[in-house]
Design a protein around this nucleic acid. Structure first.
Lengths: 191, 191, 191, 191
DNA sequence: TATGAATGAGACTTCATTCAT
DNA sequence: CATGAATGAAGTCTCATTCAT
């Protein structure tokens, strides 16, 4: 007996998550209704409520999963000294983490207004802000700060806006990172 | 008598526009209901419909007004040769245009998903894309392209994300522009 | 001077009436809004209210004008004895009156539900019923009654439903009247 | 216990249909709001939307149910030769079908303008036109055509307008059919 | 003779959520 | 593990009508 090894505890929850992710990305969080998610899955709305307490909960679960690399990066960052070398590494690791987390941040970006009031929205925003703070840590002169911002902006938003450029995603990612690092290095000259 | 000079034939239309702008920026387009706008103005919902045909129309009017500097910039850009000097100028002018258009693009950014289906959303997006195309015109190698993107990203998104940094807005704008121009200039070295 | 002879007292009222008639016929009474009528005329809604007290009033004016032939027929009918010959004449005159009144009855037919509550609706319905009563007057056996109904139905509804048939309107009208008269004559045989 | 036998999984859908039918007949389609239907049933408007996608959908469901006899008649008619005998039979069967379909056609007639734009309206109209075409099939001279129209008009509209006459419904229906058949037969003489 | 501005009522519809089964 | 049924709140929009100018 027990031909299904140790009963995978229902994959429905995961299917909900991934369907919701797809729809949130393509249509937006608010514009995606639970009815749509349920229909896309071939279940009833009530079924969603068996697996998640609220609509927000679905996004929270997605956020917890896709945001992990960024969380780990934050943990790592907090333990480092605020040197330029740390920041170079931070930028590189963030660029890398975005590979997985991009859909999540796409949702955040495109639905900021809608998520503003939601716990999950605040959490998502916090992560971005924290990365930004780690990047800015210690550096005082505005000229510096702005360069640090620029480097992060390049890596972060570049991930979304360079979709229209030719070339494969990984190549573009590296190119963006290179530019970001250069900007970072240029902070050495001033002040 | 009558401190209201020569009885303007009702400035309600403009008041709707500016109230709506405020609310769209602070709460988002979708999250702002016509009821709220009407209440904030002390009129009825129906009054809004006397002045604007639909909710989208209100945003369109705002977009036409605040987006004018960018439209003019586009017109200018199209008439220029695709030289580095043009791009430097383009970046500078765009930075400048953003002073007025920033709220508009803030709305676009934070409500992208919600505006995707709307005519006005497409128009807004188009403007951004066009600026981006003018910036990328003619330059082939990916390394170049990415730098051009980075420069624009810095100026565009910097306008929103540096709100958290100390310093007055105009100073920060100039600092961002300087970084952007530097990135642009660095395209000379490669290739 | 006074090239406009004795000032035609504003033809706007009449223009409203005829535009409204057109729209009521083509779209229905309820489906035609005052905004549409006003726009079609190039005036404002408020202008309509200068000439007519309510929307219903516009239809009432139309009804008074186009319904006159039927009113006259009713007056005539009431003064006649309830003989078969009277009914033949009644049918012929009604057929003739419909030439002018048809649009009016088209409105009544197609918007019966909407007009049920309205004074003008009741008045319109009354006219039809009265004609019908004049037609049925005096005749007792059901077989008779039904024939009389059939004759009237033929003339009345035929005016609308034979639009799809080939042939010019007047020819069809006469043909319908002939059939109606035949049916009427057939009442002689039974009983 | 439980006088409600085996707990029907909710008959609400049917109750909505029959309540709506009643109201559509007595007040008209447009004049009947979903609020009214809901209140009459003691449910909320949203409940209606659980069972039907739109207001029109409710009428469509009603139309599908009550219109079935006419649909069957059309199917039958299409398979017959265009002889006088067929037309006699068609008229008889149509008269019979109207017993069930009358409320439906009452709605169509009294709300024609309102239903013109609706899919269900077009479907309803089509049915009537098709019956009429089957009736007219093959017969050329206008005198014939008009007689055929008259016969159908008598049976169709007679069903509604003879409500005011004394006598029970079934008797009147037969009487109308008889007259209709006579008119049909009279087509033999001319030409 | 007409307009500009505004209103109050009400329409259809959609949504996230709940709960008994 | 999931469904069927229902709700309450809210949203966008349209309409006939009014009134000061």
């Amino acid at each position: 007996m027990g031909s299904t090894p140790q009963a995978r505890r229902s994959d429905t929850r995961e299917r909900i998550q991934s369907t919701a992710l797809e729809l949130f990305v393509s249509q937006g969080y608010e514009k995606t209704s639970l009815r749509e998610i349920a229909e896309a899955l071939g279940v009833t709305k009530a079924a969603l409520y068996y697996h998640f307490k609220t609509k927000e909960d679905i996004l929270t679960a997605i956020s917890d999963e896709l945001g992990r690399p960024v969380d780990e990066l934050i943990a790592w960052g907090r333990a480092q000294p605020a040197t330029l070398e740390t920041k170079r590494e931070l930028l590189a690791r963030y660029s890398s983490a975005l590979r997985e987390a991009a859909p999540l941040y796409s949702i955040l970006q495109e639905n900021q207004a809608a998520l503003r009031e939601l716990g999950v929205g605040r959490k998502l925003t916090e992560r971005v802000i924290t990365i930004s703070q780690l990047m800015h840590a210690g550096d005082a002169p505005l000229a510096h700060q702005v360069r640090l911002s620029s480097a992060l902006l390049t890596v972060h938003f570049g991930a979304f806006t360079t979709a229209r450029l030719e070339g494969d995603a990984e190549t573009k990612r590296k190119a963006l990172l290179d530019v970001g690092l250069e900007i970072l290095d240029s902070t050495r000259d001033d002040g």
